[in-house]
């Protein structure tokens, strides 16, 4: 697995998968649907899948003396690695916003979502959608990524809309405040559990589908 992960980092991955990590900074933009940052991180990861198809990465990997299922596992690990780095960056920026810029006017008067633990929870849900809808469906063919990516775009955009609307609903204002932190952290933990389970289950299904594929 170490060798395969090394291959992912040095040969398979596309530069944009790393560069798009900078979109995590969008977590600080006031008056903007900041969850789009999670979408962009996933869009960067999409470039690696596109690059893999252009460079015969799948065939190269399948011919190596390895267990074919590990090809999929290594890609999931790479995807999660980028997502975890993005999540940590967003978490640090969120902590900054909630401490040093807690009373800054642009955030105090922000009608859109501010970065807080609930924002991080929504981020994890978008990453889970990418891992299940895009990555999971991609390995049904290991070639076609159009439909899986459209499925992810639709689902993630709906999620962003729901996230931005929800904190305006009566009784749910706490989703976009800086108080009720324990409840917000609980929601983040709940999203983390969903992310982990969705990713593991999707990886297993993708491994099975890939193993059955004729390349």
């Amino acid at each position: 697995m170490k060798n395969l992960l090394n291959k992912e980092l040095r040969l398979s991955s596309h530069l944009l998968s790393y560069l798009f990590l900078f979109f995590s900074i969008m977590a600080l933009i006031p008056g903007y649907p900041i969850l789009v940052s999670a979408f962009f991180v996933c869009f960067g990861l999409f470039q690696t899948f596109q690059n893999g198809r252009e460079t015969n990465d799948i065939l190269y990997s399948a011919l190596l003396p390895i267990d074919k299922k590990d090809v999929v596992k290594a890609r999931y690990i790479f995807v999660c690695l980028i997502q975890i780095i993005a999540f940590i960056l967003m978490a640090v920026l969120t902590a900054l916003r909630m401490t040093f810029f807690a009373n800054a006017t642009p955030y105090a008067n922000n009608a859109m979502m501010n970065s807080n633990p609930v924002f991080l929870a929504w981020t994890l849900l978008i990453f889970a959608l990418f891992n299940t809808l895009f990555v999971g469906l991609f390995y049904k063919t290991a070639y076609k990524f159009g439909k899986p990516f459209i499925a992810f775009i639709v689902a993630s955009m709906l999620t962003i809309c729901v996230a931005e609307v929800s904190h305006h609903l009566p009784g749910l204002e706490f989703l976009n405040t800086s108080d009720r932190l324990p409840l917000q952290f609980m929601l983040m933990f709940f999203a983390l559990v969903i992310f982990v389970f969705a990713t593991i289950i999707s990886c297993r299904i993708a491994q099975r589908n890939f193993d059955l594929l004729d390349l």
Binding site: L11, T55, N56, D57, L59, Y60
Partner: peptide, 8 residues
């Protein structure tokens, strides 16, 4: 007709 990672 197969070449892997043509730009690496």
């Amino acid at each position: 007709a197969v070449d892997y990672y043509p730009r690496k």
